[in-house]
Simulated assay, not measured.
Amino acid sequence: MWKTRSKLLFTAGAGLSGIILLQMGMYGGHMAFGWDLNFNVFEICRQLLHALGIDYVVDGLTWLVTLTFAVAGWFAVRQCIATRRAFLQLESMRNLQQTEELGARYGELGSRIWVIDYDKPAAFTMGLLFPKIVLSSTLLSMLDQEEEAAVVYHEAYHMRHYDPLKTWLLQLCSSLLFYVPVLRHILDHYKTAREILADNEAISRTGTPAGIGSALLKLLRNPSRGTSKPLMTAVCSSFAETSINYRISRILDPHQALTPRLPWRPVMISLYVLSLLSLLFALALI
């Protein structure tokens, strides 16, 4: 069920965003390079607004497309720089001995798992194209062998499925297309679905929900022990950042079902925006 829900959420978010951004890209190509467009919503909007004598709205449409792609480029560059800086910072914090020992215990992960000297419990997967698992020495000192294995297998699921990259793409789209607020709702539920699937992987690999459940409880009780400054921000899939209370209650009651509440206001606003574009499209064809 959760795999299907995750796929549907990602497909819905990426598909809806892709359609809008593709139309914007085609319109931008037409304006910049004279591409011949057939049935492009943004070009039809531009022609209709021009025919109605409100050229300033045409200029606004052009600026919307230009700013959307300029901001997308800026976000992408900023994220790449932040990820690079974060990896450099983490490299300087690596505990080579513990990293080697942990890598030996989980040989399938090899050099893709790091242990860092950090005085707060931390476990996350970071990196867009070449993700790595990062665990803090403080966290490892809190966990027993079963809990440690559950956390590692949880993060290994995120790493193998490139969850930081997928989450960042949906996050980027929800920020760029802020006037389609249902995308934010999709992003939130997608992140929850991915965490539950990673929990399921840990339970399957360890053979018991005890390890993942007790690890979550320990992190819930000790969320910010220590005095170090927070790690540099970069997109990552964090072990105890998303829906931790629901995940614990679900482990205690595996038959519990999460019924997403339909956010009527974001849905209605999104439908209004999409309907307005469709209406302009239809009017232009009359």
Rank of each mutant, 00 (worst) to 15 (best):
218 K>L: 11
109 L>Q: 07
225 R>A: 13
130 F>Y: 11
230 P>D: 07
157 Y>R: 01
151 V>M: 03
40 N>L: 03
197 L>K: 01
128 L>S: 08
107 G>F: 09
180 V>R: 00
243 S>Q: 05
33 F>D: 05
84 R>P: 01
141 S>H: 06
132 K>F: 08
121 P>N: 11
259 T>W: 11
167 T>C: 03
232 M>L: 14
170 L>A: 04
167 T>M: 04
32 A>N: 10
91 E>C: 06
285 L>M: 12
100 E>F: 06
155 E>R: 02
84 R>Q: 12
263 P>L: 00
183 L>P: 09
51 A>T: 11
199 D>V: 05
169 L>C: 14
27 Y>W: 05
97 Q>H: 15
268 M>P: 00
221 R>E: 13
57 V>S: 05
40 N>Q: 08
135 L>T: 02
239 F>G: 02
3 K>N: 13
49 L>M: 14
185 H>G: 01
47 Q>S: 13
177 L>N: 04
65 V>R: 00
266 P>T: 02
216 L>P: 03
33 F>L: 12
59 D>E: 15
99 T>N: 10
258 L>M: 12
70 A>D: 13
7 K>W: 10
242 T>F: 06
64 L>D: 14
41 V>A: 09
71 V>M: 14
123 A>D: 02
78 R>W: 12
53 G>A: 08
256 Q>V: 07
249 S>C: 10
222 N>D: 05
191 K>D: 10
196 I>Y: 01
48 L>K: 02
53 G>K: 09
46 R>V: 09
143 L>K: 00
129 L>A: 14
20 I>E: 01
148 E>Q: 07
81 I>H: 12
240 A>N: 08
186 I>F: 02
10 F>L: 14
95 N>Q: 10
68 T>S: 14
69 F>P: 00
227 T>V: 12
116 I>G: 01
133 I>C: 09
20 I>L: 14
209 P>R: 01
172 L>M: 15
99 T>D: 13
154 H>L: 04
119 D>V: 05
142 M>K: 03
153 Y>Q: 03
60 G>Y: 02
271 L>N: 08
217 L>N: 06
44 I>Q: 04
160 R>A: 13
249 S>Q: 11
2 W>V: 00
224 S>A: 13
36 D>P: 09
241 E>M: 07
127 G>Q: 03
166 K>D: 00
285 L>F: 07
141 S>W: 04
265 R>S: 00
106 Y>L: 09
167 T>A: 07
176 L>Q: 04
229 K>I: 10
230 P>A: 11
113 I>Y: 08
271 L>G: 12
107 G>W: 11
150 A>Q: 02
213 G>E: 09
17 S>T: 11
101 E>V: 15
129 L>N: 10
112 R>I: 05
213 G>Y: 00
102 L>C: 06
46 R>C: 05
237 S>C: 11
